[in-house]
Amino acid sequence: MKDVIIRPEQCMGCRSCEVACAVSHSKSKNLFLAPGEEPAPKKRIHVEYMPALGASVPITCRHCEDAPCVSVCPTKALSKDVDTGAVNHNVERCVDCWACSMVCTRFSSLYQLLLVSGCWTSSMSYNRGIIDRRIEGGTVIRCDLCENRELPACVEACPTHALLFLEVERQPETNALNSS
């Protein structure tokens, strides 16, 4: 399955990915017209600067192989596409319970690193907009890997190649506390 690979060491925090994502999800698909649209288009990627690390980190859904958001969804609004591996969102089924947001593990390994290095901040106690509580069309918004594009807009717009769209082989997630 193809996935957006994040290389924080390459990120300069320019937020080009955020702008490209919002424009890609706008009605006009035009950089100059999108900001004036009602409702304003929403981004599905967020760049967070972490001062203790001295780095910016682009954060977006990783479309987990065994996605906990899919298994916890009571209405089956989230589903896994068996062909592409993407986690899809059915707006008509979503009841905005936010259970998906509470179980998202996107950066559990990054958070473990931050805890070890002493960089944890209170702003990291939620999923950083991976499944966003800002609503669009009456429901949650989340990364759809720009389903109507060959390359996600965020990847295409990144001037430093901090974001790549590559075929990845999923490794089973391990619990660091249980490995002895």
Rank of each mutant, 00 (worst) to 15 (best):
N178M: 12
L113K: 13
S26Q: 01
I131R: 00
L110P: 08
E38S: 14
R44N: 04
C14Q: 01
N30W: 10
K80C: 02
C100P: 08
K43P: 05
P159I: 08
M50K: 11
V70Y: 03
R128I: 09
I6H: 02
N175E: 11
A176I: 12
A153D: 01
D96N: 15
T84C: 03
V91F: 03
L151K: 01
A22E: 00
C73G: 05
P152L: 04
P74S: 06
C154M: 06
G13A: 05
L113I: 14
L110A: 11
S28D: 08
V116C: 06
H89D: 10
E38H: 06
S26T: 03
C100Y: 04
C119D: 14
V103Y: 08
I6R: 01
C73Y: 01
D81K: 04
H161Y: 12
T139F: 06
W120N: 08
T121S: 15
I131G: 00
I135V: 10
C154K: 04
P39F: 09
R7M: 12
A40M: 07
C14N: 04
T121F: 09
M102F: 14
S123I: 13
H63G: 02
P58G: 02
A22T: 01
D96L: 12
L110H: 10
S117G: 10
L145C: 02
K29H: 09
S117M: 15
P58W: 02
C64A: 14
C11M: 02
V140D: 00
N127V: 08
E169T: 12
N30S: 14
G137S: 10
S79W: 07
L115D: 14
A153F: 06
R7V: 09
E48Q: 14
R133N: 11
C17D: 08
N175I: 13
H63W: 03
F165H: 05
Y111V: 15
T121Y: 10
C64S: 12
E147A: 09
S108C: 11
C69K: 00
Q171M: 12
H161Q: 14
A55Y: 11
S109H: 13
P39D: 06
C11P: 08
A153E: 08
E156C: 03
E147G: 12
N127F: 06
V140N: 04
C146I: 04
G85A: 09
T160K: 11
L114Y: 15
V140G: 01
E150N: 11
Y49R: 06
L114D: 12
N90M: 07
H63Y: 05
C14F: 00
S79Y: 05
G129D: 07
P39N: 08
M124F: 15
T174F: 12
P58D: 03
R134V: 05
D3T: 15
I135H: 08
K80A: 03
A157H: 03
V168Y: 07
G85K: 05
H46N: 11
V82F: 00
R62C: 10
